[in-house]
Computed example of a mutant assay.
Amino acid sequence: MFLGILTLLVAIFSVIGGYVELKRKNFFGVGFAAVSVAVFGWFSVMTLFSIIFTGGGGTV
């Protein structure tokens, strides 16, 4: 659960960073932010989906 939340935070910070770089017209940074949002966003959504709906994850 912690890993899913952590990667979701990374995706959210990447969205913010992409917006800032778009205002600066740094399209190389915008591209990296978009790739980061896609990868970390997909991983966090699928991790949380797996934990919530299939009961995955270990007990601590």
Rank of each mutant, 00 (worst) to 15 (best):
E21G: 01
T7N: 15
E21Y: 06
Y19W: 13
T54F: 13
V15Q: 06
G57I: 12
F40R: 03
G57Y: 10
F49M: 06
S44E: 01
G58P: 02
L9A: 14
G55N: 04
V60A: 12
S44W: 02
V60I: 11
G57E: 09
V15I: 14
L9R: 02
W42Q: 00
G31N: 05
V10R: 00
V37T: 13
S14D: 01
G4F: 07
T59R: 14
G58H: 13
V37K: 02
K25H: 15
V37D: 02
W42A: 05
V35M: 14
T54K: 14
I5W: 13
V15M: 15
G58W: 14
W42K: 00
G29C: 04
G41V: 07
I12L: 14
V37Q: 06
G56Q: 13
I16W: 10
W42I: 04
M46T: 15
L8W: 06
I51F: 07
N26M: 06
G55M: 06
V20W: 02
V30N: 10
T47Y: 07
G4W: 08
W42P: 00
L48M: 15
E21W: 00
F32H: 06
K25C: 09
S36L: 04
L48Y: 07
Y19C: 14
F13V: 05
I5Q: 08
G56K: 14
N26Y: 05
F32A: 10
Y19K: 08
G57P: 10
G58N: 09
L8R: 05
S50L: 05
L9F: 15
G55H: 04
V37L: 12
L8E: 05
N26W: 02
V10Q: 04
I16F: 14
F28G: 10
F27W: 13
A34D: 04
V15T: 09
L6R: 03
L48G: 05
I16Q: 11
F49R: 11
F32S: 09
I52H: 03
K25G: 08
S14C: 03
A33R: 01
S36M: 04
F32Y: 10
G31Y: 04
T47D: 00
S14V: 00
E21Q: 12
F40L: 09
A33H: 08
R24S: 15
L6K: 03
G4Q: 07
N26E: 11
I12D: 01
S14K: 00
M46F: 12
T47S: 06
N26T: 09
E21D: 12
V60R: 09
L8F: 10
G58L: 14
G29P: 00
F49N: 09
G17H: 10
F28H: 04
L22F: 14
G41P: 07
T54P: 01
N26C: 08
G29W: 00
V30T: 13
L3R: 08
G17F: 09
T59Q: 11
G4P: 06
M1G: 11
L48R: 06
G55Y: 09
S36C: 05
G18W: 03
L48I: 15
V60H: 08
S44Y: 01
T54M: 10
F32N: 11
A38N: 02
R24Q: 14
E21A: 10
S50F: 03
V45N: 01
A34T: 12
L22P: 04
R24T: 12
I16E: 09
V37F: 13
F32R: 01
V35F: 13
A11I: 03
G56I: 07
V60C: 07
